[in-house]
């Protein structure tokens, strides 16, 4: 099936088996392998991308369902020599070890900060209304959809809070 995806500002038309997940379309058909497959069932978050402004698991949707949709992957954020502030903070705080979950963490963090800026509460928010203070706990809860078996969570939380301007190092 023919599908056109707008990825990182560029339009791609591909002809895929309807069974192709958005994740596999990126990895197998477009050579955008920065988006990782850790479980293929929405249980690890390594495949997180931003779809029409929202972070999602790209493994749990079909490429053909996204004709015309806008997608941002890790390749769209920055590259070595021109990293964005979140990517730089992950390097500085060692918010990774093996690096496999890292693109998903960074995409998730990017989408998450946007959710916070819209005032979305979380499970750990004391109140459902009002501004969200980006405490360590708020970041940890909102990032719990991204597993890291190396367990770089302390660095991940610091990198995100620093990028959000909550703490300075």
């Amino acid at each position: 099936m023919q599908t056109t995806l707008k990825i990182n500002g560029e339009s791609w038309t591909l002809d895929v088996d309807p069974r192709t997940s958005l994740l596999d379309a990126l990895r197998h058909h477009l050579d955008l392998t920065g988006t990782k497959k850790g479980c293929d069932h929405g249980q690890c978050g390594a495949c997180t991308i931003i779809l029409n402004g929202r972070r999602i698991n790209s493994c749990l949707t079909l490429a053909v369902m996204h004709d015309g949709d806008e997608i941002t992957t890790i390749e769209g954020l920055g590259e070595p020599g021109r990293l964005n502030p979140m990517q730089e903070a992950f390097v500085r705080h060692d918010g990774y070890q093996c690096g496999y979950c890292t693109p998903g963490q960074i995409m998730s963090a990017t989408g998450m900060l946007d959710e916070v800026s819209q005032g979305w509460p979380s499970h750990v928010s004391a109140s459902l209304e009002g501004d969200v203070p980006l405490s360590r706990e708020e970041v940890a809860e909102r990032m719990s959809g991204n597993l890291c078996r190396c367990s770089a969570y302390p660095g991940i939380v610091r990198a995100i809070r620093e990028t959000a301007g909550e703490v300075s190092e």
């Binding site: 999602i56 749990l60 949707t61 909102r142």
Partner: peptide, 21 residues
């Protein structure tokens, strides 16, 4: 504001990514 139990239940489920979809 008016049905907070529903917000709370939703926020207790799944993850940010899954809830977005």
């Amino acid at each position: 504001r008016n049905w907070p139990v529903l917000s709370r239940a939703l926020l207790a489920g799944a993850t940010g990514q899954l809830r977005n979809k």
